[in-house]
């Protein structure tokens, strides 16, 4: 079970349906954490190498998995034992609302279809309301991503993140690039491309010092020297768990970052000092 799945169950108040999770150290939800501590919820280890023995002993009847590497291991044997494996492809979604729509699956699984539909339609209304607030004016340029050794990896123009930036009315410099994954940029190019950039989103670190420690060249970027840097590092586990099912709050954060000089109330984001 991925972090986003726990988030979707939590907005339906169905955490009690969870009997086991993988990667338990990334759990944000307080009641799931408590369940893990008390032993009511089993920790199955890392998602790539979960303990099948623990999984079977957890008494789970349904396994929701991300299917990053295809089929769930031993799916046929588990099926024979009456355990159903459901692949969840929310991570493939390029539209934030499309990703949130997977909430409906959890609604069906927990018998709360109507509640899930209602929640989904509410978040769609909220999301679109924020989109309507976006004014068509030239805004500060924005960059996203960070260096991984010698290259900068930014969200490509057709990716989930690029769509969020567009919906929030942000002036993302690689919005016109093709692809739904990453857009790779050399160090030289990123330096020149970002010379007028004022906002840096999602460097993946909690502080400016951590960014420099990871790659000292980052301090040469204009957005590092003269711009503002925001990351979802307010609480990393909260972001991974809830951002998919609360895209309206994510969009509200991004809208505030691009429209207000010093936004105070952010749900997921934090300015890096």
């Amino acid at each position: 079970m991925s972090a986003t799945h726990i988030g979707m169950l939590s907005v339906l108040n169905s955490e009690d349906a969870i009997c086991a999770v993988s990667d338990s150290k990334f759990v944000y939800n307080p009641s799931v954490k408590q369940g893990l501590q008390s032993g009511a919820i089993l920790s199955l280890g890392y998602s790539q190498e979960i303990s099948m023995e623990l999984l079977i002993s957890s008494g789970a009847k349904t396994i929701v998995h991300s299917a990053f590497s295809g089929d769930f291991p031993h799916r046929k044997e588990l099926n024979k034992m009456g355990i159903t494996c459901i692949p969840n492809f929310d991570w493939r979604e390029e539209d934030p609302l499309g990703k949130a729509e997977w909430l409906l699956l959890f609604g069906y699984l927990t018998g709360k279809e109507e509640q899930a539909k209602k929640l989904f339609s509410e978040l769609v209304i909220s999301y679109k309301a924020t989109m309507k607030k976006v004014k068509k004016q030239t805004k500060d340029q924005l960059i996203s991503g960070n260096f991984i050794r010698d290259y900068w990896y930014a969200p490509a123009g057709e990716s989930y993140n690029a769509k969020l930036f567009e919906d929030a009315g942000m002036n993302y410099i690689y919005s016109k690039t093709k692809g739904t994954g990453s857009y790779t940029v050399s160090m030289e190019k990123i330096l020149m491309d970002t010379k007028d950039v004022k906002i840096w989103i999602n460097p993946g670190f909690r502080s400016r010092a951590e960014i420099i420690k990871s790659n000292a060249k980052a301090k040469r970027l204009n957005c590092f020297q003269n711009g503002k840097i925001y990351c979802y590092s307010n609480d990393l586990n909260k972001f991974w768990e809830l951002s998919a099912v609360q895209p309206h709050l994510l969009l509200a954060d991004l809208y505030s970052i691009s429209s207000i000089p010093s936004p105070k109330k952010l749900h997921f984001y934090k300015e890096l000092k």
């Binding site: 050794r149 010698d150 160090m187 790659n215 000292a216 060249k217």
Partner: peptide, 8 residues
Amino acid sequence: MGSLLQVE
């Protein structure tokens, strides 16, 4: 991976 770009 090695790199010639990390030197300041």
